[in-house]
């Protein structure tokens, strides 16, 4: 039994609606910056976003074209596997189903791939039906590079390592291909409500 450090409580938010907090999480007002590597800096005039792989028709957009796409502002709670949750985060982004329109995918899996080499995998079904966006604004401002700008994937119903930063494309596949953290032992799916942090959870 470790000694109690009298009066210590950390920076957690203490007045919290418990029904919004998945098991093992605590709420924060901060927005911690986590990363597997250095922040990439792709100039916007060199940036493009691609949907490809097991699709009948691949699609690609420049930054200017991307900003012309129908987009929306959404407010969601986000949950990091390192145990912090942040409520009511506000994002502007393009719903992923919009990006897939007309591509006619026959694969059931997606790999999100990014500047800097990061990848993460998801079932295609988890990025459709209002569950995922490619987000480029946070709290009303252009998305900061340290938080994944110019654009990142936003999939709030899964642990936030699935919301890949510095996103450059979605590759549809017929096989499930574990991404970076998944291949090192993190859970393949990552549902915070089932506390799916590691591969054996």
């Amino acid at each position: 039994m470790p000694p109690i450090s009298r009066g210590f409580h950390g920076r957690r938010q203490t007045e919290v609606d418990p029904s919004r907090l998945p098991p093992g999480q605590y709420a924060t007002n901060d927005f911690p910056v986590l990363s597997a590597g250095p922040t990439p800096h792709t100039p916007l005039d060199e940036w493009s976003f691609t949907v490809g792989g097991a699709v009948k028709e691949a699609r690609s957009w420049t930054w200017d074209e991307f900003l012309e796409l129908p987009n929306e502002v959404v407010t969601r709670d986000i949950h990091c596997v390192t145990k912090w949750s942040k409520f009511d985060t506000e994002w502007r982004g393009v719903p992923v189903e919009r990006l897939l329109e007309g591509t006619d995918p026959w694969g059931k899996f997606v790999v999100a791939w990014c500047d800097g080499g990061y990848t993460t995998n998801l079932p295609l079904a988890d990025v459709l039906d209002g569950q995922a966006w490619v987000a480029y604004e946070y709290a009303g401002e252009p998305l900061d590079p340290e938080h994944g700008g110019p654009a990142r994937l936003l999939v709030p119903h899964l642990y936030f390592w699935k919301s890949a930063k510095w996103l450059r494309g979605l590759n549809i596949g017929e096989q499930d291909e574990p991404g970076f953290w998944e291949s090192y032992g993190y859970h393949n799916y990552g549902d915070p409500w089932k506390e799916q942090r590691y591969w054996s959870d």
């Binding site: 470790p2 000694p3 109690i4 450090s5 009298r6 009066g7 210590f8 950390g10 920076r11 901060d30």
Partner: peptide
Amino acid sequence: DDGEVSPWLTEEAREGDQFE
């Protein structure tokens, strides 16, 4: 400022307090 641990160590902690 806004640290997780340093504010406790520098402002709250006193003689007799413990940690691991």
